[in-house]
């Protein structure tokens, strides 16, 4: 696990060596800030529901952009060969990269704490759902990171990795809004697959083991698939 932490530090640091990190964070804050405050004074309610409603959709675009380079770039440059022939296991590499992605999502969420703080100055804010929203945001972010890393391991082209990751995340986000396309028998299963459902449960301030299990399963499936892909490449 010590190796995974070295890899985590390196990957996390690498985000801030290139302008990508700053662009992604700026874009994220711009989009969420705009959509949140545009309707805020019309609704005239002291809560962050609008912000959290939007979060899964924004994440499904932003997170694949964060994770797309994690494997694709290394495979393209060839540095993966150097990395994996040092005394590290496949698991170390996957976990290190995953932690770097999740840490980046956390860093990205920190500036948005200004929203609840400013809202609490304007009215009586219920902090329960806000806490839930941020915990859910991190869980959702972790799940999408795992999916993004899986997409990144598939190809050495970062744009393809981004498109593939975004497609999967977008489907998981939007599937509960397309339920009328599906036969009635499948609705239960598809409803369960929808990331948005689980996220909104937590964002209401209810932390249910089913929702936790859902996000942890997505993380596991994403990272395990990555492992299988990298084994297949040998």
């Amino acid at each position: 696990m010590r190796q995974a932490i070295h890899i985590f530090k390196k990957e996390f640091g690498a985000y801030f060596l290139s302008p990508i990190a700053y662009i992604v964070i700026a874009l994220f804050l711009l989009v969420t800030g705009w959509f949140f405050f545009a309707g805020f004074f019309i609704y005239n309610r002291a809560d962050l529901r609008n912000f959290f409603n939007l979060l899964p959709l924004v994440f499904s675009f932003v997170i694949p952009a964060i994770t797309m380079r994690l494997y694709s770039e290394e495979l393209n440059v060839g540095s993966y060969e150097i990395l994996i022939t040092m005394p590290v296991t496949y698991l170390d590499v996957i976990v290190g990269k995953f932690m770097a992605g999740v840490a980046f999502v956390a860093v990205m969420l920190v500036p948005t704490l200004a929203y609840p703080v400013s809202v609490s100055l304007l009215g009586d804010l219920d902090w329960g759902p806000v806490m839930g929203g941020y915990i859910g945001g991190l869980l959702l972010g972790s799940a999408y990171c795992a999916i993004g890393i899986f997409a990144s391991s598939l190809t050495r082209n970062q744009i393809i990795a981004f498109m593939a990751g975004m497609s999967i995340c977008f489907i998981l986000t939007m599937i509960n809004k397309m339920l009328f396309f599906f036969p009635e028998a499948a609705l239960g299963v598809i409803g369960y697959l929808a990331a948005d459902n689980h996220f909104q449960n937590i964002a209401k301030g209810i932390i249910d083991s089913r929702d936790l299990l859902y996000f942890l399963s997505i993380v596991f499936i994403g990272l395990y698939s990555t492992h299988l892909v990298m084994q297949e490449k040998r």
């Binding site: 690498a14 060839g78 150097i82 022939t85 005394p87 590290v88």
Partner: peptide
């Protein structure tokens, strides 16, 4: 092991890179 044409992390400083390798090693 040194692969062909030394595919190193291109955006790191030489010192940082060697430091990283030292820690992994």
């Amino acid at each position: 092991y040194l692969p062909e044409s030394a595919p190193l992390y291109h955006d790191m400083l030489v010192y940082d890179y060697l430091d990283y390798v030292a820690r992994i090693r």
